[in-house]
Simulated scan of single mutants.
Amino acid sequence: MPAYWIAHVTVTDPAQYSGYQALAPLAFAKFGAKFLARGGASDSPEGAGFERHVLIEFPDLQAARACYASAEYQAARAARTGAAEVMITMVEGV
């Protein structure tokens, strides 16, 4: 069953965030991720507002979790430290 990362992001330092953008695709490719939404126009009628919203599909929840825990993604995450406010949720599809 597919699973998804739902990420909400507000970039606070674009120059530093570019390091994350350079590294994260390595992890996503390794775990079969498919981007369904990335940035673009959005509305947030309830809850905290973020600049960007990203929806990433994985083959299953195990792959979604493994991607996050991977050395590749953790290196990307470290590169974005202090450069963005981020909230990520992993959820199984139906």
Score class of each variant (00 low, 15 high):
H53K: 03
I6P: 06
E92Y: 06
A66L: 02
A83P: 12
S44Q: 11
G19D: 08
Q21W: 01
L26Y: 01
G49H: 11
I88Y: 00
S42D: 08
G49V: 14
Q62Y: 01
Y68P: 00
A75N: 09
F58W: 13
E72M: 05
Y20G: 07
G19L: 04
P59H: 09
H53P: 01
M90P: 00
G32W: 10
V54F: 01
I56D: 00
A83D: 11
V94C: 09
T81P: 00
A84C: 05
A66V: 00
L36H: 12
A75P: 04
D13N: 15
C67W: 07
P25Y: 15
E57C: 08
H8F: 11
Q74A: 06
V94D: 12
L36I: 11
Q74H: 05
A27M: 07
A15I: 09
H8W: 05
E92L: 04
Y20A: 05
I88V: 13
Q21D: 12
S42Y: 00
A33P: 01
A66K: 08
E51I: 01
Q21H: 06
F28K: 10
G19S: 08
V11E: 09
R65H: 10
Q16R: 15
A69Y: 00
S70P: 05
D43A: 15
M1S: 14
A3R: 02
V11Y: 07
V54M: 02
V91R: 02
I88S: 01
E92P: 13
E57M: 09
C67G: 08
A24Q: 04
D43I: 12
P2Y: 14
Q62S: 13
F35C: 06
Y68R: 06
E72Q: 11
R38V: 04
C67P: 08
L36P: 05
G82K: 07
A64Y: 02
A84Y: 03
M1K: 15
Y68V: 03
A48V: 08
E51W: 02
D13P: 10
A27F: 04
A15N: 10
P45W: 06
V9W: 02
A69F: 00
S18F: 03
A7N: 11
A79P: 10
A75E: 14
P14G: 15
G49M: 07
K30N: 04
T81M: 10
M1V: 11
A3Q: 04
A48G: 03
E57T: 11
Y17S: 03
E51M: 07
V54I: 14
F31Y: 13
E85K: 07
G40D: 12
L55K: 03
V54N: 01
E92S: 14
G93M: 06
L36F: 08
V11W: 09
H8V: 02
E72C: 07
A69P: 00
E57S: 07
V94H: 12
A24R: 03
A29V: 06
A7C: 13
A41F: 09
I6W: 01
R65Y: 00
R77E: 05
I88D: 02
T81W: 00
I6Y: 03
